[in-house]
Amino acid sequence: MEFKFSYLFAVIWLLINVIVSIQVARRDDLDAFQKKGQIVFVWIIPFLAAIFVWHYNRSMDLEVKRGNGTFGGGESPVDHE
């Protein structure tokens, strides 16, 4: 039995598209039109679209770095004796 890379590529392509489609469908921050559009985009333009949508959605999930926890610019509440 001969191993064909085209079968491996097809399986990887389907797996990526299914994973990304599920990821998009489960997002709460997208409305129904955006979800449908992104899923259609993934399946019409297969491999590159899946990578693009995956990267786009992951970039939205990155935690925003905050400052050191202080607010304002006044003095800190320290007891002066």
Rank of each mutant, 00 (worst) to 15 (best):
W43I: 04
V42Q: 03
D79V: 15
R26F: 07
A10L: 11
R27Y: 01
M60A: 09
V18H: 00
G37V: 07
A49V: 04
F47W: 10
I12G: 00
K36N: 10
Y7P: 07
G72Q: 10
K36F: 14
G73T: 14
A49D: 04
I22C: 04
N17A: 11
W13T: 14
L15M: 00
E75M: 15
F3M: 09
V24I: 13
Y7G: 09
N57G: 02
A10G: 06
K65G: 06
K35M: 00
N68Q: 12
W54N: 03
T70E: 14
S76W: 15
K4C: 07
A25M: 08
S6T: 12
V78T: 14
G69C: 06
W54T: 01
V40D: 01
K35H: 06
H55S: 13
E75Q: 15
I12F: 09
V64A: 15
R26N: 08
G69F: 05
I16E: 07
T70R: 15
W54A: 04
N57F: 02
V11L: 07
K36R: 14
L48C: 07
A25V: 01
G72Y: 11
L8T: 07
I39G: 05
T70C: 10
G69P: 03
F52M: 06
L14G: 06
A25W: 07
F3I: 11
A50E: 02
A10F: 02
P46A: 11
D28L: 10
L14F: 12
V24C: 06
P77R: 14
F5Y: 08
V18R: 05
V53Y: 06
F33K: 13
P46M: 08
I44A: 10
H80F: 14
D31M: 01
V24S: 07
V18C: 08
I19M: 11
F41H: 05
F52Q: 06
I22K: 08
V18G: 07
V42P: 07
H80S: 12
F41V: 02
V40K: 03
D79P: 10
K35E: 01
S21F: 05
G72P: 07
I12R: 06
F47R: 02
W13L: 15
D29P: 04
H80E: 14
W54L: 09
M1I: 05
G73R: 14
V40A: 14
L62H: 09
S21P: 01
Q34F: 03
N68V: 10
N68E: 13
D79I: 15
S76E: 15
K36S: 12
K36M: 13
Q23A: 10
S21H: 04
A50C: 06
E81F: 14
Q38A: 12
P46H: 10
G67H: 09
A10N: 10
I19T: 09
I19G: 03
I39E: 01
G37W: 00
K65F: 10
F47Q: 01
F41W: 05
Q38R: 11
Y7K: 15
G37N: 02
I19V: 13
V53P: 00
L8N: 06
L15D: 01
G73Q: 13
N57L: 13
V20Y: 04
F3T: 08
P77H: 14
S59V: 10
E63V: 11
R58N: 08
K35W: 04
L8A: 11
R58M: 03
W43L: 05
W54P: 05
G72E: 09
N68S: 12
L30C: 03
V53Q: 05
I16K: 09
R27G: 02
R66G: 00
I45V: 08
